[in-house]
């Protein structure tokens, strides 16, 4: 039994079938990278895993428990699975500290003082304790994204989903976010991330999955996917990435 098991997952938006039978396994403490052309369904898959979208077929299991379909307590699932978005999605009317403590206080029922102490600890880790009282629009993109990661971590998730979290950042701000991910990976956080940062994927990934036409077209250790891809489509995709100077 794998930690996260995605079995033959389909997702349709009306006529458009975005996911056409995804199969994917993630073990505990693994970092799995999803790569693929934009529009191939990476975000959709991640949103399905924590129940923001309902799937149209197949099933997803977390620690052996079914987490899709009728009768699933989505609010409980989401306490275990955190997600960080490309566009940060911080709450603009709340300070950094309030952003990080909202869910622990309201969802987990942790007393405010304790939640704030833990949040300050997280902020110290990401080097933003001085910004605790600042509002999101007073922060740079990189800082906002680190706060968004801290907000997800404050729920102590067992699985962290990351959806192209550096794509909306200016190039010089990317490394501060990737460094944080490196630390999390080193600590054994289980992560499933959609990314275009191929060299980062090559460095930290336990497994890389190439999504093409709604299925996992090829998967394997990063050395294989980047060094010796077996599939024609994978090679074509990677050569475009290399052309763009991102590998």
């Amino acid at each position: 039994m794998s930690f996260l098991e995605i079995r033959d997952v389909h997702k349709r938006y009306g006529e458009l079938e975005v996911l056409k039978g995804i199969n994917l396994k993630v073990e505990q403490h693994q970092v799995v990278c999803l790569i693929g052309a934009s529009g191939c369904g990476k975000s959709t898959l991640l949103r399905c895993i924590n129940g923001l979208e309902a799937i149209s077929g197949g099933e997803i299991r977390l620690e052996g428990d079914r987490i899709t379909g009728p009768g699933v307590d989505l609010d409980r699932l989401r306490r275990k699975v955190g997600i960080v978005f490309q566009s940060f999605n911080l709450f603009p009317h709340m300070t950094v500290l309030q952003n990080v403590t909202l869910a622990p206080i309201q969802v987990l029922g942790i007393p405010r003082a304790e939640a704030e102490a833990r949040a300050m600890e997280l902020l110290r880790r990401i080097g933003l304790e001085a910004k605790a009282k600042a509002y999101p629009d007073q922060l740079s993109g990189g800082q906002q994204q680190r706060v968004a990661i801290a907000r997800a971590l404050a729920m102590d998730p067992q699985l962290l989903l990351l959806d192209e979290i550096t794509s909306a950042l200016d190039p010089e701000l990317v490394s501060e976010v990737l460094n944080l991910l490196r630390e999390l990976a080193a600590e054994g956080m289980t992560m499933l991330l959609a990314t275009h940062e191929m060299s980062f994927a090559r460095e930290v990934a336990s497994k890389v999955c190439f999504l093409y036409q709604g299925v996992v077209h090829e998967e394997g250790p990063p050395e294989q996917i980047f060094g010796d891809p077996q599939q024609e489509r994978t090679r074509a995709f990677l050569s475009k990435i290399i052309e763009a100077g991102r590998l």
């Binding site: 989505l74 989401r78 955190g82 978005f85 869910a103 987990l108």
Partner: peptide
């Protein structure tokens, strides 16, 4: 996306309205 962010943190429909959307 504000709904997504709030719901993904485990906030319920009414908590999302009260703490995130209405303010």
């Amino acid at each position: 996306s504000q709904w997504s962010a709030a719901r993904s943190l485990g906030l319920s429909f009414s908590q999302t309205l009260r703490f995130v959307i209405i303010p």
